[in-house]
Nucleic acid binder design. Structure first.
Lengths: 325, 325
DNA sequence: TTGAAAGCGCTACCAG
DNA sequence: CTGGTAGCGCTTTCAA
């Protein structure tokens, strides 16, 4: 059997309610008593039983994260960041990779304080019990819980517009053109730019990739670079695709940005270790994470919170883009 | 408040101990009563409180998985598989991405039935409380808990020997030569083959890569293929590296296996969608998963279990290898 | 400042 | 077969 507060009480010669208070650092316990109890607890290797604690206090200081698609590494960075920040707020993060419905059930049974759902499949989430839910995904529907969404369309739109303003007229988009709604939004933004700029559609190009690995970006870019009229600028749908594209460009002995400009969707701080820092557009990872924590804390404390939270992308231009005449 | 068995009892007009029994499908409750209770529970959207349940029954039917390195996608496949199999045994899997020590603390506080640790850093894990631990990693030290290890050295050794037997005398290894112990084991197996075969060391080659992405394999293979005396066979340290290498080979207009043979370390069922199926060596994913579940169930049921479990690699040869004269 | 006691939601045992 | 009741480990009144 593991050691309980009763064991500590016996060992320290106090009542077990005093132990409980001491361990919670209550001001109702005298310093010496507290110290003694702490010492004994330490020595015995005491670990509080969360089950018992949350049973009475109705608080578990735990956030459940529903992440059915661990294969998607993009999220791993965000989840790691969120995990770290929650830890600093003395919250524990537990992750389930089950499908949304069953993961929700698990977490509600565990009486976590809140559930954070990552789900691009946009399935309707009906809440079990009364555990508050926060979701990452598309905020297009009316939901009973807050959804944090990133304005992907605006991001690619912004990037395309910027490239246009810099004089580019042959711009290619590399991304998952036939993908899920999240991906389609990015394509939409690109297309919107075409429309508004009233440019001939042939001057824009979409290259389809099947997934988001570096290699796909490499292949797509290679294909582009052999065109008779090769693009003067490339916009990629993800960081990994950009990495592949960069490689293809270097291999073709083209230089960035003189021969070709490049901007990538995604915005997290891993993007620095290139010869030329990559221009990016998207919501910075730390801002998403910060907002997520903020919303989580709000729902936990029963504060009012909007159900649709759109985050604005930021365009970060570096030397990977240049003006052409 | 969420609904409890007392609410159900009131609604169904029975005692709450009967409800408890009915929900656990006990034979001590008559079918009609059971049906009634089930119906009411369903209607009320009842979710059992795990905290309360495990508090009294000392069983949580939950396995805690410690996975501090989510970035490593190789593991994501294995963990997904294990998760699925545990689900079928009606066990719940909860994942923590915190560092080993703090994750162990969390899970022991949650009174999970067992903790599964994935840790290549080989840090010594001291058990909190009495939750049994099963580890994936290096089984070289004496530990108080079972460690499941894969004989990586034997795997690469086997592969190199096989290639030798097929007449190859110029064999290159692509992998993380300076990596952690897990990676070094693979290198060791390769080197062991060189030694035992008493071949001049120059006929073997190790190409160092920094991480395990497809692109690294691509680059490494490219480098190899431009050598004056290019290898007739390549052994890669991972699936992703192999994919990159394949690409480089195709681009050089070489054909597999006529111009070059290739074997990859890693052994899971994603390897089929190549033009030529890849030869592999390693412990099949499903066998690792199966063994893991077996050990977990044993430690949960307090059965005796060895502390060092070595799994034997399997060499699967396909058309990606051929004999040369 | 400390201790005693109630009770969180549930299981398990015993009585009927 | 069903109901009553003790108690899991803990927090939180209320008394002392």
């Amino acid at each position: 059997m593991s050691v309980t507060i009763k064991d500590i009480a016996k060992s320290a010669g106090v009542s077990y309610s005093t132990v409980s208070k001491a361990l919670r650092d209550s001001p109702l316990v005298k310093k010496p008593t507290k110290d003694l109890i702490m010492a004994v607890a330490n020595e015995l290797g005491y670990q509080p039983n969360i089950a018992a604690r949350s049973l009475v206090s109705k608080k578990s200081f735990t956030i459940g994260v529903v992440w059915p698609t661990i294969e998607q590494t993009v999220l791993s960075k965000l989840i790691t960041t969120i995990n770290k920040e929650l830890e600093e707020l003395s919250y524990t993060t537990l992750i389930s990779i089950n499908e949304v419905k069953s993961a929700l059930k698990i977490f509600s049974r565990y009486q976590v304080d809140a559930i954070l759902v990552f789900d691009s499949s946009q399935s309707i989430v009906s809440s079990y019990s009364d555990v508050p839910i926060v979701m990452h995904g598309l905020a297009n529907k009316q939901t009973p819980y807050p959804v944090i969404d990133v304005n992907r369309q605006k991001a690619t739109y912004q990037a395309a517009q910027y490239l246009y303003k810099m004089g580019h007229r042959y711009i290619s988009y590399i991304g998952d053109v036939e993908g899920d709604k999240l991906q389609k939004e990015k394509v939409k933004g690109f297309e919107q730019a075409i429309l508004e700029l009233e440019l001939p559609t042939y001057s824009f190009q979409k290259i389809r990739v099947n997934n988001f690995e570096q290699y796909d970006g490499y292949e797509a870019a290679k294909q582009l670079l052999t065109l008779a009229k090769r693009p003067t600028a490339i916009l990629t749908g993800s960081y990994d695709l950009a990495r592949g594209a960069l490689q293809a460009i270097y291999e073709s002995n083209l230089s960035i940005p003189n021969d070709i400009s490049i901007i990538s969707y995604d915005n997290f701080p891993a993007l620095e270790h290139f010869d030329i820092p990559l221009s990016t557009v998207g919501v910075p990872l730390d801002k998403i994470s910060e907002k997520t924590i903020e919303i989580l804390m709000k729902v936990i404390n029963d504060e009012e919170v909007e159900t649709k939270i759109f985050m604005e992308p930021e365009l970060k231009i570096t030397n990977s883009c240049t003006k052409i005449s």
